[in-house]
Design a protein around this nucleic acid. Structure first.
Lengths: 291, 291
DNA sequence: GTGAAAGCGCTAACAA
DNA sequence: TTGTTAGCGCTTTCAC
């Protein structure tokens, strides 16, 4: 089923079919009508591959997620898919499984498919840079949430400002002995937050670094309270850590947010169901963000 | 950067370039070598759009998810993405937002992109059928998790058998007064489980039906215990319901799985981190499954 | 406003 | 084994 079929049924040229069906102008009302009814009758739908080849544009965006199982993923994907579907853009998905080599592969595969743009949540602050810079030569690349290259675009929060805002908020509440529980410092987001914390917090040396996991959030909480008994707030680097910390505190009999507050910076307000699970009783702050 | 560039640099025809780069056989060692080095030198990568048009195959699979924010989604997507990446297949993602009309749109968009196969978790047991049957005329369609059409393929569990297994397990444990907490009966999975429960359970009339949400899991739990005080097990239709039920019981001071067990049927064993969050202390059964 | 024809990048028949 | 050539389905000059 091609433009030719529609053209012959409608008694016009393939050019006219294309003009009508791709919404280009300069088409007579008569031809327009004939083409449309022929297309409907045949159940014709344009072949996006042929169109892409000719137009040199696939109307498709590639998305490389550092780790699909990260809780951050569904809300991000949903927001993107919504926006893209609205624009008629396709979304080609790839997972880097937190591995730089797989990330490189995934990017290559998406580029081979001629995506019009590439969105990526970089796996590693340092090691993802080359992959991103190279991809950026071939198409538009946008880094999401965390940043590995200064050349490609970046959409995420101003971590330094956000940390400052949260610390100010804590101070207003009289909480002046926070501990920072970091996750994987390879991720720029965590790293930047940690640096800002060290620079700005009254207790800037109280920093624990581990990995991006719920368990580490729990372990770190125990360690924090042992090492610094006067702790009155846990500043968590991200979602999973905060969940772990909150759970640990609850299982120790604390009634959040007292006497120890749990704060974190979340890049998305995202999925309400997940959020509700994550933060029952947790202190929530909405910091200022940068474009 | 096309086959022509590589061909002229290597001093061979474009056909030879194609033969080498697409791994077809019957190529002399000399030509093979020259083409490969030329390709490397130019950083050439095949254009998948041209290839797709010629081969009439995109090496791409479409995935239509009923609702991305469903907790079921990440583990499913990860499993699929893993398998597809391994085979060099692309994954084109679309979200139906639990809406039949959007599902129809999403399917149409993916078909226009000439996906080689379409995977779908149908939104509605009844209303998704036409969409799926029509798509099935154009490409291979596989229904995942729940089934709306008998014509297209289906991968999921044998719900009836699974319910039977779980009830038998409960009986062995001396629990003979279960209540079924269903979610949206539009979804075939829920519906089939509910029917099996009604048929097989000693207390088959104890069924509550609501929607696919954590809140409903909580509400239903309260209602179940009020209406049937001798309840000794909550048979939840799916993940979210079970989470809600477990949370509600815990907040009522119960120490799961006693005195009231919470059971559910989960189609994926999936993401360990999510699973751990979902089922702390919950009774787990691994029922037999069908292909 | 409409049609004829070229060509996007690639691969597969066919010829040599 | 290698090259020549046609053509996948579409859009877009270019001519009328």
């Amino acid at each position: 089923m091609t433009v030719h079929d529609v053209a012959s049924l409608a008694g016009v040229s393939t050019a006219s079919v294309s003009r009508v069906l791709s919404g280009r102008r300069n088409v007579g009302a008569d031809v327009d009508e004939r083409v449309r009814s022929a297309a409907t009758e045949l159940g014709y739908q344009v072949n996006a591959v042929g169109r892409s080849l000719r137009r040199q544009s696939t109307e498709t965006v590639g998305l490389v997620i550092a780790d699909i199982t990260n809780l951050f993923f569904p809300s991000l994907t949903k927001a993107l898919e919504d926006a893209f579907a609205h624009e008629g853009l396709g979304l080609l998905l790839a997972d880097a499984a937190n591995d730089v080599a797989r990330e490189r592969d995934a990017v290559a595969r998406l580029l081979a498919r001629q995506v019009d743009a590439l969105l990526i949540t970089p796996v590693s602050r340092l090691q993802s840079r080359r992959t991103i810079d190279e991809a950026n030569q071939r198409t538009t690349v946008v880094q999401l949430d965390s940043r590995a290259s200064t050349k490609a675009h970046y959409v995420g929060m101003d971590n330094s400002q956000a940390v400052s805002d949260v610390l100010a908020h804590l101070a207003e509440l009289g909480r002046t002995s926070p501990v920072f529980i970091g996750s994987d410092p390879h991720i720029s987001t965590t790293w930047e937050r940690q640096r800002a914390f060290s620079r700005l917090a009254p207790t800037g040396d109280r920093v624990l670094t581990g990995d991006f996991s719920l368990d580490w959030g729990r372990t770190a909480t125990i360690e924090a309270l042992e090492r610094w008994p006067d702790t009155d707030a846990l500043f968590c680097a991200d979602d999973l850590i905060a969940v772990g910390a909150a759970e640990q505190l609850r299982s120790m009999g604390h009634r959040l947010p007292s006497p120890i507050a749990v704060v974190e910076l979340a890049s998305t307000s995202g999925n309400p169901a997940v959020q509700r699970r994550l933060f029952p009783g947790t202190l929530q702050v909405r910091p200022s963000t940068a474009p």
